[in-house]
């Protein structure tokens, strides 16, 4: 936690969409730095810009103002250098490819050799506990397994940054707990920098080293909470007083940013 190698830096970031009903301030004056190995969660009500901010880091949206650097490059340069793996809300696996074929997709596009592809696919399948399912088609698997496969797909080319946009939002609570636990183990093993969008307070507190609280109209950061929890976190840490204390702070932050509720 002491090496403060900066990976992502946003300076006075602005993003305004022009719509028929006039301009929408999706992001205003967002300042944030994310260090190597951080697990940063973005939490807030819908419309607060948490997904938009993640998409800006991924260069899927272009900010209209401010400065954003990823790995010391602009976001778009970083995208072209394949600096991150992105996990979407839905698994979005191609139904015409097997699980292994889906994980191989980015490797094919990025031009890895045949042998390397096979090796990496096996590695990440193991990482997400899906050994033996490589030959199955996505529609033959449960929702939780599909989402694990999509995480494997994002890990396969071994980018340092993992961006996750509510990856477990569509899953039921029991599956979600299980995947959260697995994700922490995976993070501990790989040391990746993770940006994680969620709207679940327990999820954010359980996973993160830092929690970024955001609020809408205009989308902005209202609070950044450093978690004092240890990196090693069993599921029952969620009943500890520290955990409840942080969750309370996050809830306060959300309420403050959302004055009208």
């Amino acid at each position: 936690m002491d090496n403060h190698e900066e990976v992502i830096r946003a300076d006075r970031l602005d993003l305004t969409f022009q719509t028929n009903d006039g301009p929408v301030h999706a992001l205003r004056d967002v300042n944030l730095t994310i260090d190597k190995g951080d697990f940063v969660s973005f939490i807030g009500p819908s419309g607060c810009g948490k997904t938009t901010f993640l998409r800006c880091i991924a260069a899927l949206e272009t900010p209209t103002g401010g400065m954003l650097s990823v790995n010391g490059m602009t976001a778009d340069e970083a995208r072209r250098a394949r600096a991150y793996g992105y996990v979407f809300q839905a698994a979005g696996l191609y139904p015409w490819r097997t699980i292994a074929g889906n994980i191989r997709l980015p490797l094919e596009i990025m031009g890895f050799s045949r042998d390397e592809q096979v090796r990496r696919v096996n590695d990440v399948l193991q990482l997400v506990d899906l050994e033996g399912f490589g030959g199955k088609y996505p529609w033959q698997l449960s929702g939780g397994m599909q989402q694990r496969a999509s995480i494997a797909r994002a890990l396969s080319f071994d980018a340092d940054i993992l961006l996750m946009d509510e990856p477990f939002g569509a899953l039921d609570e029991i599956v979600r707990d299980h995947l959260n636990e697995q994700l922490l183990a995976l993070w501990a093993r790989t040391g990746k920098t993770i940006g994680f969008v969620t709207h679940s307070i327990p999820e954010a507190v359980y996973l993160s080293t830092r929690i970024v609280v955001m609020s809408p109209r205009p989308g902005r950061i209202t609070d950044v909470i450093e978690s004092p929890l240890p990196r090693e976190r069993p599921l029952d840490i969620r009943e500890s007083p520290e955990f409840i204390e942080i969750a309370h702070r996050v809830r306060e932050g959300l309420r403050a940013g959302h004055g009208d509720v």
Binding site: A59, L60, R79, Y86, G92, I109
Partner: peptide, 14 residues
């Protein structure tokens, strides 16, 4: 294709 599928290709700089 869905917007998500196209975004995925974008993240790979395909």
């Amino acid at each position: 294709t869905t917007a998500m599928q196209r975004d995925l290709m974008e993240t790979y700089a395909a």
